[in-house]
Amino acid sequence: MYKVKVYVTLRESVLDPQGKAVMHSLHKMGQSEVEDVRIGKYLELTLQKGDYDLDEKIVSMCSKLLSNPVIEDYRYEVEEVVAQ
């Protein structure tokens, strides 16, 4: 089995009002060193091994559903795990 960890974040060029609000809140906590906060999503997929191209499959899932390429970027990590 594969465990695929997908990180989806807003693209650099897209303002993140949620991140801004959290940053202001951190400043109020006294954490004045915080210069920017970006909020994203973390997804964990568990995939069966098979006769397929893993990267191709992940890219397809990420670009068609898990992220919206108009406003979001994604990156991923793959771990091999033993089926339980």
Binding site: P17, Q18, A21, N68, V70
Partner: peptide, 17 residues
Amino acid sequence: LLETGLLPGAMRRNESL
């Protein structure tokens, strides 16, 4: 319609949240 690609662009959270 945006997600389906029938129209261009995307929606973000309202600026005011």
